[in-house]
Simulated assay, not measured.
Amino acid sequence: MTDVLTPAPAATQAAFDPDAPDALWAVGAAETADGLIDYPVSNRDMVADTRWAGERLQAMGVARGALLDFVHNYRECGQFWPYYMAAAAMGAPVMNGMATPWDVGRTEMYTRRFDLALVMGIGGATTEGLRSFGHDSARVFAKVPLLIAREPAASELEAAGLTAWRLTLLGPLLLTAAPGEGAPYDTSQWTVEADGEGRLRVSSGSDRAARYARLDTGLRGRVENGRVFIDAAA
């Protein structure tokens, strides 16, 4: 059973000072076994998540001057925005497009007109949209050194001869993993565990605005040494 504690701590009600560490930065959304739920993020959370995102971008080889493209929808800003902040701090400009079939024109145009270092967030709606507009995903993404895609797009790109990292939204967490590897996560902010049936559950750290206890993410897998391995069937 999922145990979601609400409301957020009283400290996050500090609306009188929007710059206070515990003041709410925004409220996003997190996908769970029971559907979407609110994902509150404080200023303090954003600082911590931006630090982690910077470490992940460095692990991906992103450096100053690299051009990045993030593909996501508005409700995913709580998970993606730290990567915008981290990229800006690194001096890596970011462009974006929505993870919808009708907005793939932006993604296609970016790959054609710019030397992108990575595209992160490609999903099934992206590849479906490209096909509907007469584009070959393998050709569109052929020049991009690093593709980070959700399933089933990641498998589709690999079948076309491209290499793709995996991106998974595990409730409030954005996980990325190189092929064949588990996805690291920020253990200072979150606890991820698999229950007896292999369901992946997320608990938030005590300082976070989101108060989750063993949140059922609806995905299955295992956790080993701070890395999450998502079941392919999930």
Rank of each mutant, 00 (worst) to 15 (best):
T111L: 11
Y83G: 07
E151I: 05
P152N: 08
R201D: 02
D115L: 10
A194Q: 06
V140Q: 01
L130M: 15
G129D: 01
A177N: 01
P172C: 06
S188N: 13
L170M: 09
V94D: 08
K143H: 12
A92W: 00
A92T: 09
G134D: 08
R201M: 09
W81V: 13
A164L: 01
L175I: 05
G161S: 10
R106D: 11
A178I: 07
L175W: 00
L170P: 04
F114D: 02
R199A: 14
L170R: 00
M90T: 02
I122F: 07
V140F: 05
L169R: 10
D136P: 04
G196M: 05
R150I: 01
G196D: 14
E108Y: 10
A177E: 08
R113S: 13
R166N: 11
R106M: 15
F141P: 05
L130T: 06
F114Q: 13
T111D: 11
A87W: 01
Q189C: 12
G123R: 06
R166W: 02
V119W: 07
R199E: 11
A183E: 07
T187R: 14
D136Q: 03
P101C: 01
G198E: 03
R150L: 12
F141N: 04
G91A: 07
A183N: 02
L167H: 09
G123N: 06
G105Y: 11
A154C: 11
V144A: 05
T187G: 14
A153D: 03
R150P: 00
R131F: 12
P145F: 01
A164F: 06
M109Y: 15
A178S: 10
R139P: 04
T191V: 10
M109E: 15
R106G: 13
A99I: 05
V94H: 04
Y110D: 09
T187P: 03
V192A: 05
